[in-house]
């Protein structure tokens, strides 16, 4: 007897990802799809995708999807969720989208305790546009718009999104994870599931920051990029649950 022990989640489409080799976007998409399946949410999910590398996420998910303009996914999610309180609404956003152009929408949807869930992919760079400096680029890190390394005298300091949002009363769940190992993957999925459950329980805004990679723009092998997250990025962006209420 053979038994199928691993299969594509129902909420993940059969389309081939457009992501570069070693990129974690596809991994996180899969984790979201697994959680949607496990919580039996597909029939009432509306996902909001961002502008950036994951702009085509609507092709990779099997649930209803909306493509938002750059940075506005939480506002779009607010519009959907307020009109359809019985729906399940998640936004998927990168660091430029969530923490630069969309900072106002991020902070205010969190402050309103908007009953939506946000998956925030922080890889410290604008991958799609060619590897420019992001609001989360670490001091000293080289990008195409800070070729000598991010200099705080010129470009200021990276934004710690979880810590920033944790000062607000609106969020029900804020966590930072790093899917760079088997344990990290399990914790990432658990955090996403917890965040989604908060919405189902009507607790309000939940956000999971995923420390992610960009082997192409970081000019690293996929394995080195994971090591870098584990050894360097987590020093500046500590993992853990910041809000859980």
């Amino acid at each position: 007897m053979t038994q199928k022990v691993f299969e594509r989640p129902r909420a993940l489409s059969e389309n081939t990802f457009s992501y570069c080799a070693g990129c974690l976007h596809g991994v996180v998409h899969r984790l979201i799809a697994e959680v949607i399946d496990e919580l039996d949410l597909m029939e009432r999910t509306v996902g909001i995708c961002p502008v950036g590398c994951s702009v085509f996420m609507y092709d990779y998910m099997e649930c209803d999807m909306i493509e938002a303009s750059h940075g506005r996914a939480p506002a779009v999610a607010t519009g959907v969720k307020r009109i359809l309180p019985g729906s399940f609404v998640f936004a998927y956003q990168g660091d430029g989208d969530l923490a630069a152009i969309g900072t106002a929408e991020t902070i205010h949807s969190a402050a309103r305790g908007e009953n939506i869930s946000v998956v925030f992919i922080n890889n410290g760079t604008y991958g799609m546009t060619g590897g420019q400096m992001a609001p989360t680029t670490l001091v000293g890190a080289k990008t195409t718009t800070c070729p000598e390394g991010r200099d705080p005298a010129i470009a200021g300091y990276p934004i710690k999104v979880c810590e920033l949002l944790s000062s607000l009363d609106g969020p029900s769940y804020i966590a930072r994870v790093a899917p760079v190992s088997a344990g990290g993957l399990a914790k990432t999925k658990a955090a996403i599931k917890k965040a989604f459950q908060k919405q189902l329980d009507g607790k309000g805004f939940s956000l999971v920051e995923v420390l992610s990679n960009c082997p192409t723009q970081w000019n690293m092998s996929p394995i080195d990029s994971l090591k870098w997250i584990e050894e360097t990025a987590t020093k500046h962006y500590p993992l853990g649950e910041f809000v859980d209420r």
């Binding site: 303009s69 506005r72 506002a75 607010t78 519009g79 959907v80 307020r82 359809l84 106002a104």
Partner: peptide, 26 residues
């Protein structure tokens, strides 16, 4: 119906975009 005072006109129109996606008149 739903009333939301948004944080800006940029957010307002994007809330309208999302709400319009549900087919409700907004």
């Amino acid at each position: 119906g739903v009333f939301v005072q948004a944080e800006s006109e940029v957010a307002s129109i994007n809330m309208v975009y999302g709400a319009a996606c549900t087919g409700t008149r907004v």
